[in-house]
Write a protein that binds this DNA or RNA. Structure first.
Lengths: 125, 125
DNA sequence: TATTGACTTGGAGTCAACTCCAAGAGTTAT
DNA sequence: ATAACTCTTGGAGTTGACTCCAAGTCAATA
């Protein structure tokens, strides 16, 4: 798969794909003899993990560190486990923030829906 | 409440507090006769809403727009309702991303926990 | 083989959301 | 009233995550 195909299939810019590789968020992508990126299944698997982390809001830096540890081999398994549990904790906290805001939004929306009928809103920010 | 007290109580920097006010994410804060910020209950309520939005990851720009509409009065109630439902949609999408990553993390962590016992990990990124 | 279009790199630019700084004014304790 | 501290503003600087650009190389088609 060329960078263009990957970019279109996974809806991510070519620049972002090159950036992820450059900063070490994914391993160096397989190339053709001419030096052109030719994504293989394994490249895609790394990319998929990286995109999943990013779309959940985890920092690029975390994925870089995970990959760095991974490439050092089995001795870093405990460190990787630690990293993963830290990130799980962070995501659970973030989800809690989102749920708090959702509660607030639901309350507001309910009141605004009534207000749209009546044209007036009683003490609400 | 002075800016320092608010900063400490709500664990947010004084600079961020001034920034929120400057960009219009919260209304101008009540001042003493000398021009020093003196947060009242209502100032705190706006701040609380703003901080809740930010910690859920909603953009500053959205809160600015909400406040702008709010200050124009009841005629903007439908627009505010629209804004709120848009943000709810965005948060639900974001929560879905987080849940996907959490599933993935839980799977990985389970495998890594086993690997920590045995010292080896079988095909895993 | 020449052209066209997609690809390459290194580096600069952008954007959001703060964060820091300097110079000066307000407030409190002695 | 003087020191010591906290506050003010405007504006510059920083960080993270891309995004854009220029100059050049590679590949497919006429």
């Amino acid at each position: 798969m060329t960078i263009k195909e990957v970019s279109e299939k996974y809806n991510i810019s070519q620049d972002a794909l090159r950036y992820y590789e450059r900063v070490g968020m994914i391993p160096p992508v397989t190339r053709t003899s001419g030096g052109i990126r030719n994504y293989q299944e394994e490249d895609i698997r790394w990319l998929d993990l990286a995109m999943c982390m990013r779309s959940a809001g985890l920092p690029v830096e975390v994925m870089i560190e995970y990959l760095r540890l991974f490439r050092q081999g089995d001795s870093t398994i405990p460190a990787r486990l630690q990293l993963l549990t830290d990130q799980r904790k962070a995501l659970l906290a973030q989800r809690k923030h989102i749920d708090e805001m959702l509660d607030r939004l639901n309350y507001k929306i309910a009141r605004y829906e009534i207000a749209v009928e009546t044209g007036k809103l009683t003490w609400e920010q």
